[in-house]
Structure formats: C-alpha cells, structure tokens
Design a protein around this nucleic acid. Structure first.
Lengths: 119, 119
DNA sequence: AAATATACATAAGATTCTTAAGTATTTAAT
DNA sequence: ATTAAATACTTAAGAATCTTATGTATATTT
C-alpha cells in the first residue's frame, strides 16, 4: 500500500471549502487556527491547510452568507469562532454529496472498470 | 442518492493530469480530442474537459518529458497522438496512487469516522 | 531570555482553470 | 449545393485559488 507524506497542492485545491463546511457542521463552531490543527490531526499531517489559504476562504464564505462569526477574548487575544448559517448547512450537504459523487466517478475512471448501464 | 449533472470546476482542477496520464496508460495512445470525448463518455458527461484546459496540459506534460507525440494525417487534417514515455509511466502510477490515497483520506475526513490507530 | 505555539490578516506571485476567439477539414442535414 | 455540426488543434485574457512570505501580537514552553 502506497503511503503519501503530504498531498500535492492541486489536490487540496477545490476541496478546502468542503472540508471547512463539513467540519463546522460536525463540530458546531470552530476558530481558524483550530480548523488547521484539526485537519492536520485527522489526516496524520497529510493535509495541512495553510493560513494563507484558510483565512481568505473563511472570509469569502462569511461574505457569501455561509458562515457567521463571534469574537471571543482569550486573555488579551481575539479568537473568531465560525459557525454555519442555515444557508451554510445546505451548502455543506451539497458540497459533501457532490464530492462523494465525484470520488465515485474518479474511482470508476481510474480503475477503468467495464462500463455498466445505469438501468 | 444524489446525482450531479456536472462537477464544479474546482473539483476537476488538480485531477486533470492524473486523468490524462491514466487514460494514456490504459489506451496506449490517444489524441487530444479523443481524450475529451472518452472522458465525457466514461463519466456520462459529468466530467467535460475543455480544450482550453486539455491542450495546455498536454503541452506541459510533453515539455516535461512525460509524453511523446506522433503526428498523423487523416486526409488533410493533422492529428497529434500522445503516448507515455517511461518517465510518464512512473508519473502515472504515482499520481493515481496519490489520488487514491487522497480519496481515502477525504472519505475518512468527510464521514468523520472515529479515528483508529495505524498499528 | 529565547524559542515555539497560538491567532489573526493580507499581499505578491504561481498555477491552473474558464471563456473566448481563431483556423481549418470533414461529415451530416436540409 | 449549402449550411450546420462535428472534428481537431492552438493560444490569449481573465478568474479563481492556492503558496509563500510578511506583519502583528499574545501565551507558553524550554
């Protein structure tokens, strides 16, 4: 079995929003730094979201009405907790379903199994 | 079961080279237009590679020594057949393995199954 | 005291796609 | 016969999204 130390960045591209939305759906609310740490932990370091990728994505999702934020002070330091809006809940479901479907298609395409009818 | 008409472009990004290399490994040699048609057919139209994406990718892979070409005339029209170099064979294997590993990781991450040890 | 971890933000540059336009031959439809 | 659609390739402008780097600041560990 092939073991990959870390995935090439092209693969992460396109799945980041889905990862974030799904994690927030599961955990309720999280802050940015926590998301990077959780993804790294859950994937044994194989997916490491950089801050330069994450924060603009979070801002974009918030601007688009998928996420809402609450600020909290931990001592003197600010934390921004993100959670899904109701629209974000729907988007999360759609994105996860689409990715699951895509992965099935890719599996078929890469295995090049004989094509069966859809009946 | 969710059915997707066509995947959002972010998902295709990052998998195009892998798709092309794998198809060429399976078919021996193909020309560009044939690749777009084959992928569309195999995926029921869910993955439609545009020419603006494919041709630059083929040129890039050739420039990088993964592919080699033969020109053939069909009547007065030129066709460029692409096939894998020995380096391309290796790259194809690596890319497919990496993508398979990535999909396993993503499946785990999206299902959020309880983490099991790797022992 | 210094190094590392926590926690955010953002800008410049790279990559890779979409969209569009261009060229030209061949086949199918009217 | 003429037109439209399919075949077949190329390339450029623009958009999206990531990497890399920098900046700021607090908290914890060595």
């Amino acid at each position: 079995m092939y073991i990959c130390p870390m995935y090439s960045s092209e693969l992460i591209k396109g799945t980041l929003k889905t990862i974030v939305l799904n994690l927030l759906r599961d955990k309720g609310r999280m802050y940015g730094y926590e998301i990077t740490a959780k993804v790294k932990e859950l994937t044994d370091g194989k997916i490491q979201i950089t801050e330069g990728a994450l924060y603009p994505t979070l801002h974009s999702l918030e601007k688009n009405g998928e996420l809402e934020t609450e600020k909290e002070f931990i001592g003197k330091r600010v934390r921004k907790y993100y959670s899904l809006t109701s629209q974000g809940q729907e988007t999360a479901s759609q994105k996860v379903n689409e990715l699951a479907d895509f992965m099935n298609t890719m599996k078929f395409l890469l295995d090049l199994e004989p094509k069966l009818g859809n009946a």
